[in-house]
């Protein structure tokens, strides 16, 4: 009986998320079409900011929905883990494509640095959800620059760096225990980091574990997020 209820809930949750994602997609695309009519005109900063805000928030809701569904499935051991070989250049370009209209509107420059033929094993669906959240955050906090880079040395490291104020000290000090950082009063729940860590751990292979780290500084002087997987 309990299993029955669970599978009904599962189905309802999955199809609700699916419908909401569809609506958000339509919303975003309609907004982009409106915005593109103004592309060659100079927009008032206020209008641009509003546009950016709607873009950002709808991308964020979409991403939160994906995380919610994945975390729920993970808890119930129903999350399909489907690792495969992927080209990192293609993969990272696709992740940033999702944010091009938003970055344009906010005047943010982004760069991807990765070797053309670098390939690695991961679940691209889950990794995409992680990166979407992190890149979205970087766009929210950066001043003008975002660098996405990737290297392979025993572990695959994907790094997202910005030139914003960086991660708050207490967040870095949580050192992995991000569930502690969930604070409903600030509006930033930190769910993205909890999710990122879970997904990194899911990518553990043999005795090598996946992990994430937060730091500040680097070339751009802002926040640096790194996800490392074997």
């Amino acid at each position: 009986m309990k299993d029955d209820n669970q599978s009904i809930f599962n189905l309802v949750l999955a199809s609700t998320v699916h419908d909401m994602k569809n609506s958000l997609g339509m919303l975003g695309e309609s907004l982009n079409s409106i915005f593109e009519q103004f592309e060659n005109k100079i927009l008032e900063p206020k209008v641009r900011d509003h546009y950016g805000a709607v873009q950002y928030e709808s991308a964020r809701v979409n991403n939160l929905l994906m995380q919610l569904l994945a975390l729920y499935k993970l808890e119930n051991e129903q999350l399909p883990f489907n690792p495969n070989y992927y080209n990192l250049g293609d993969f990272l370009e696709e992740q940033s494509c999702k944010f091009i209209p938003l970055m344009k509107a906010k005047g943010i420059n982004y760069q991807i640095k990765v070797a053309e033929d670098l390939e690695a094993v991961f679940d691209d669906n889950l990794m995409a959800t992680v990166l979407e959240n992190i890149i979205g955050n970087a766009i929210r906090y950066t001043k003008s620059q975002i660098h996405i880079s990737c290297s392979f040395d025993r572990l695959l490291t994907i790094q997202i760096a910005d030139d914003g104020p960086g991660y708050p000290k207490q967040m870095i000090e949580l050192a992995g225990d991000y569930i502690q950082g969930i604070d409903q009063s600030t509006g930033s729940t930190g769910l993205g980091l909890v999710f990122a860590k879970k997904i990194a751990e899911l990518h553990s292979h043999k005795d090598v574990k996946g992990n994430i780290t937060l730091s500040n500084g680097g070339e751009l002087g802002g926040g640096i997020f790194e996800i490392k997987i074997p």
Binding site: K21, G28, E93, K98, P101
Partner: peptide, 12 residues
């Protein structure tokens, strides 16, 4: 994967 924008579709 839905939702996607024109940039992503073109890149794909």
């Amino acid at each position: 994967t839905k939702p996607f924008n024109r940039h992503l579709l073109k890149s794909k």
